[in-house]
Amino acid sequence: MAVVESAERTSSTAVSLRSLAPYLADCLVVGFGLFPLYMMITTSLKTDHEAFAWPPVWVFTPTFHSYLGALFGFGGRRADHYVFNSLLITLASSALAVSLGAMAAYGLARFRFRGNRDIAFYILSTRFAPPVAFIVPIYLMVQRSGLLDNALALVIVYTSMNLSLVTWVLRGFFLDIPIEIEEAALIDSLGDLFMERVPVRLDTGTRLCSHDTRLSRRLLGIDEYRLGGVYGSGHLGGAADHDLHPGFAAPSGAGPHLRRGQVRRCHVSNSTM
């Protein structure tokens, strides 16, 4: 009896090991995916020294000094100033890009005219080159128009850079809305009351779409923080009080040798590229 039982037990362990294998593989993949997140969080809780140590420090005493610095003492400026600038600039350029883009997209999606598709593609193609490629020419333009250190410069640049993507995305949404719905509204005499709102308001899906684009717009805007560095504080000598850059993006762009209080220098180096 006892012999039989133990034989059964070993075979069942072998079986359960084999059935566990896929889960182990899953754990590996998930671990790989989550590791960067883990590093980001732990790095934020390390001291500067620990953060840049090589080999990485795995065991350390967590400290919140980075958070405190970012919120209350970062670069001699409170972070809310940067956050406010970022918010203002992103919201303004998002609103501009979405409202202008929606009109262009509606025209491209609904009206038949010669070269319609070519124009749509041309609009998208303006995104083909990386925005960084335009930094110098745009810097010169901003400089000549006297808009350095002015939020307006960033709003204009972000809007123009993202307008194409917004137009393209919204065009897709408009194409998805059956034209019959607009025609039904027309025949029902919803005319002035309703017509313009139909395509924009359509369903939660579409409503989401505009959020969606606005969201990706905002991400894009933040992603181009470097531009903030260039056109905002690119102003080489002084005027520190009018510094304009999306503050929270600065540290990661500044590179590992950054110390508190050195943010300004990193922007100087950015602006010279």
């Binding site: 719905i181 039904a184 029902d188 359509l202 939660t204």
Partner: peptide, 13 residues
């Protein structure tokens, strides 16, 4: 006039 469409064309929202 009132029209009925093949794909219903109801206002989805």
């Amino acid at each position: 006039m009132a029209m009925v469409f093949e794909n219903y064309a109801l206002y989805p929202h």
